[in-house]
Design a protein around this nucleic acid. Structure first.
Length: 353
DNA sequence: TTATGCGTGCATCTGGGTGC
DNA sequence: GCACCCAGATGCACGCATAA
């Protein structure tokens, strides 16, 4: 049996319960105190015409005094929309996804949407959101997204769905990240500093393609450590990285590109073990730009990767129908990456033998 | 045991009533 | 006639009572 997703609400979703456990304040309570009908209260609180200013002010004052918060479930019954966006996020998400979620929530709330998050099983997440009248769902895909259960649930969902990190689809909006171009940018930058002997450490095929393409284009030097493949399930592959770091200055590359911040931490650990200093002995660019990098390392790393603010705003533009409208179909947006040049890339002349 | 119907909850909308 | 206000209807899911 599939586990239920963990559902997290933001404050605006669930304010109808008093901390003390007292019963909920409704417009009927306000109407009784103000000596008017609850219709008048509704009009007054929603800025509708037909209520004298004096009456309106009195109603608003009572509502504030009672800490009145509209019951969203009831409002959804009438509106047939929730003004809520549901995010389905992986259970084990890293810093990048955390910052993307945070940025999405900030921007969504500014646009007048509440954000709910379901962690874990995406099919169960969609069903939970459907129960809560959430008609817009954003998904960060996991392996479970190709399961028959998820496909069935997705097909029964009547609202709008957006899939991050996905190629164009006839069933939902998609946003992809141009990783290939990101790595090309990184290689370009290093090449501009004179580096000809560069290594890529990672396993993502898109990023490797970008590295290969840039290498061919810029006619970089071919060498035994040009690509060190470090798949997730093969920790022993990092032995090759250690071997490379133990080589003499003339034998090893002058610059490295790692395909994630997690890989970067592993690399820095190996560098310390092998007495290799960054950036004094090697230039380094890491994929993924997360603010914690500066706090968790004593060096300010040059990074390349998508900007979480751009990703979040691209998603909201699609979901709120801003930007370029889709012509009878689902939109696909490819988000470009940004190179942030900081302290770990130096001209190759600094590494002269 | 299953199927059906009714009442409840709550904010909003609509059409109509009241009073100046 | 206009500003203001009110009663009833509406939307949907769920629980409960009753009938088959």
């Amino acid at each position: 049996m599939a586990m239920s997703p963990i559902l997290i609400y933001n404050e605006s979703i669930d304010q109808n319960f008093h901390e003390s456990g007292e019963s909920v304040v409704t417009i009927k309570d306000i109407a009784q105190m103000a000596g008017v009908s609850f219709t008048t209260v509704s009009k007054a609180l929603n800025g509708e015409p037909g209520v004298r200013a004096e009456t309106r002010n009195k109603i608003i004052a009572i509502a504030n005094k009672l800490n009145y918060v509209p019951n969203l479930a009831a409002r959804r019954l009438v509106d047939r929309k929730s003004d809520s966006i549901g995010l389905i996020w992986p259970n084990k998400s890293g810093l990048f996804l955390y910052h993307l979620f945070e940025q999405f929530q900030i921007q969504a709330e500014k646009a007048g949407y509440s954000v709910m998050v379901a962690l874990g099983n995406p099919a169960a997440g969609v069903r939970t959101f459907m129960k809560h009248f959430v008609d817009t769902i954003v998904v960060w895909p996991t392996a479970e997204n190709t399961s028959p259960e998820f496909i069935r649930t997705r097909e029964s969902f009547q609202g709008t769905m957006l899939m991050f990190n996905s190629s164009p689809s006839p069933y939902y909006h998609t946003i992809s990240i141009d990783r290939q171009e990101a790595i090309q940018q990184a290689v370009d930058h290093l090449s501009g500093l004179g580096h000809r002997k560069i290594s890529f450490i990672g396993y993502n095929s898109e990023k490797i393609t970008g590295f290969d393409r840039a290498g061919q284009l810029l006619q970089l030097e071919d060498h035994p450590d040009r690509l060190i493949f470090t798949p997730k399930n093969a920790p022993e592959s990092w032995n090759r990285v250690a071997d490379m770091l133990r080589k003499t200055k003339s034998q090893r590359p002058t610059a490295l590109i790692v395909d994630s911040y997690i890989a970067m931490f592993k690399l820095l650990k190996l560098c310390r073990m092998c007495n290799v200093r960054i950036p004094e002995d090697l230039s380094l660019i890491a994929y993924d730009d997360v603010p914690e990098l500066e706090e968790m390392t004593d060096i300010v790393v040059t990074t390349v990767g998508p900007n979480v603010e751009h990703l979040a705003s691209a998603a909201l533009d699609i979901l709120t129908g801003h930007g370029h409208p889709a012509e009878g179909g689902y939109r696909h947006v490819k988000v470009a990456s940004q190179l942030a040049v900081r302290g770990t890339t130096r001209p190759v002349s600094d590494y002269a033998m």
